[in-house]
């Protein structure tokens, strides 16, 4: 992170609060900057608000107060075209959420065709390249029900990439996978990180955090407790973090 361009802030969250209709205060004054090309890993116990925070970043969840800026554009601003912003921030879900009525190729092609209204032949070529990149060139015509969890998640990643997003959000992308499939998905993610994709990853894979993350963030009870480089993070003496790591490791 010596390059000046990499220091540019892509996603800026300021004093974000989220209170659900049932009164649950899921995010408490969360502030976080994510720079272009950076990989930020978020960890924390269940119910700490990690998913909620990710979902506010592409407006699947509205925020109660505070500001979120994506590439300088305020999400809370009434004039902001939320659909346009969502194109720029892709999301990969724990449960894959592939479209079951479309083949792997169809899943990847749908959004560029319908949202960007691009030329079909061009989109198809790009989609094939993307599936090739995630190692699924031989499963393009398969429906999701015929794919393993790891394969489905890789299709989901390719699907997000097809919109050429500026950033990708991952919400526990490997938590629903059998252990032997975790590696193939993490490998794809590592490849993306190496290519300079901006990524925010909620995960329990400490190895991934150590190896790939530029920064690791610890959340608990809706608060952003700690934000450090991996080396310092995993050697931190912070009592709340110690308690959590003691539980998972």
């Amino acid at each position: 992170m010596t390059n000046q361009a990499q220091k540019q802030v892509l996603i800026a969250a300021r004093d974000v609060n989220k209170i659900f209709e049932n009164g649950c205060h899921a995010l408490k004054n969360v502030s976080l900057d994510i720079h272009r090309g950076e990989v930020v890993v978020i960890i924390g116990p269940s119910g700490s608000g990690k998913s909620t925070f990710l979902r506010t970043l592409n407006q699947l969840e509205t925020i109660s107060s505070g500001h979120i800026k994506i590439d300088g554009i305020d999400l809370v601003d009434k004039n902001t075209n939320i659909n346009k912003l969502r194109e720029e921030v892709g999301m990969v879900f724990q449960s894959f959420n592939l479209f079951p009525h479309k083949t792997a190729l169809g899943n990847v092609m749908l959004a560029p065709l319908k949202v960007l209204k691009r030329d079909k032949a061009e989109v198809e070529q790009e989609a094939k390249d993307l599936l090739y990149r995630v190692g699924l060139h031989d499963r393009m015509q398969s429906y999701p029900s015929r794919l393993s969890g790891g394969q489905q998640q890789r299709v989901a990643i390719a699907r997000s990439l097809a919109m050429k997003p500026k950033a990708l959000l991952f919400d526990e992308p490997t938590s629903a996978l059998d252990p032997e499939m975790v590696g193939e998905v993490l490998d794809v993610m590592k490849g993306l990180a190496k290519e300079g994709m901006t990524m925010v990853v909620v995960t329990h894979e400490m190895g991934f955090a150590r190896e790939v993350a530029d920064r690791v963030v610890f959340m608990e009870e809706g608060e952003l407790v700690l934000e450090e480089s991996p080396e310092r993070f995993f050697n931190s003496e912070h009592p709340r973090l110690q308690r959590f790591l003691g539980q998972v490791l």
Binding site: N58, L60, N83, K84, R86, E87, V89, G90, M91, F93, S95, N97, L98, F99, L110, A111, K114, V115, L116, A156, R159, S160, M163
Partner: peptide, 17 residues
């Protein structure tokens, strides 16, 4: 499943799409 709508929205589709 609601995840289908969320996945579609996160790809930039509007509600109607």
């Amino acid at each position: 499943p609601p995840g289908q709508m969320e996945a579609a929205r996160s790809l930039g589709m509007n509600y109607a799409q």
